[in-house]
Design a protein around this nucleic acid. Structure first.
Lengths: 168, 168
DNA sequence: GCCGCTTTGTTGCATATGCAACATTTAGGA
DNA sequence: TCCTAAATGTTGCATATGCAACAAAGCGGC
């Protein structure tokens, strides 16, 4: 279920289609299972606490991090989702009074997104569940191992660092 | 969106809710983004080749690996999905003539799942796209790094090893 | 055997999603 | 200027999903 077009660089493809080595296959399997497991844990904890799903948090956090009203297109990239997905996500969040769409004078095609006070409050409240859940899911490894893990993953994906945490 | 109840052991919880360390947070972010990126890449490649999504492959592969007609409940665990999700997945695959449900004499509640010849053929054909896509997505790291990555991930998730590859 | 409880799997309904088509605005050239 | 192409979001429709309720069969004690 592709959430978005792959951002992997298309390869130069001067070599024949290749079967992954056994270590690569093991890493692939582990990546799929473990990421699903930890995601599920966090989502389940949020649900148990009657909070919306993580993507709502992420939208609110990105808006908060930006510190100013932000275009959907400038959110879609870091959020790694497709425009129409964000459009409907914002529909629901706006219906819940968490964000508002405000007119964008510079470009009348779009608009700017801004969290409401309720939106700020919800994000902060969700962090109270999100943070411990993340720690429960990921805390089984030492910090040094976590850094190594992040390094290896980023070597795979080559994606710029993005903060997610609360910081107050 | 939790695909299934978390399989993480519920913790003894004798410590206060904790904010994850910065390395843990970095690993969490990297895990989410990179796993999404590589999953998307593979799903997109399958779609471009007019193949069904990866979960279909995985069902067929697990059935093939089992080597005998298999109960849904015995698939749901390794597939890491909920019973009702598998039920509908099998509905669609059966409608496409890829698997069949056959009666289970020992336990008339359920049934046994078996790939059809068309199912076997599809899985093999999909591997021709799946394998190179996996390698493109994951081949940026050396085998030694891949093993380290798998090791770290499995330390996080503690999930038993499951094969996925073709092997013929 | 009989009864309640568990296991196994399915389904009705409301909601969410993917896709392709669309509307609107901007940008770029002839 | 005017026309075409690209960028930015949204939406109609068909399909997929989550959830809770359900059906049917096994299990265990009496």
């Amino acid at each position: 279920m592709p959430l978005q077009q792959s951002r992997l660089k298309s390869l130069t493809r001067n070599s024949a289609p290749k079967v992954p080595s056994d270590p690569i296959q093991r890493a692939w399997i582990a990546l799929g299972r473990v990421s699903q497991a930890v995601q599920c844990h966090v989502e389940n904890e949020l649900k148990k606490a009657d909070f919306p799903e993580l993507s709502w948090y992420t939208v609110l956090w990105e808006l908060e991090r930006a510190g100013k009203p932000t275009r959907p297109k400038d959110l879609a990239i870091p959020l790694f989702i497709l425009p129409y997905q964000l459009s409907r996500l914002v529909d629901r969040m706006e219906a819940d009074g968490l964000v508002k769409r405000i007119v964008c004078k510079e470009d009348k095609r779009g608009h700017l997104l801004e969290p409401t006070p309720k939106g700020f409050a919800l994000r902060k409240a969700m962090w109270g569940v999100y943070a411990p859940a993340m720690d429960e899911a990921m805390g089984k490894i030492e910090d040094k191992e976590a850094l190594k893990l992040a390094e290896l993953l980023n070597k795979l994906g080559g994606i710029e660092h993005v903060d997610c945490a609360d910081k107050g």
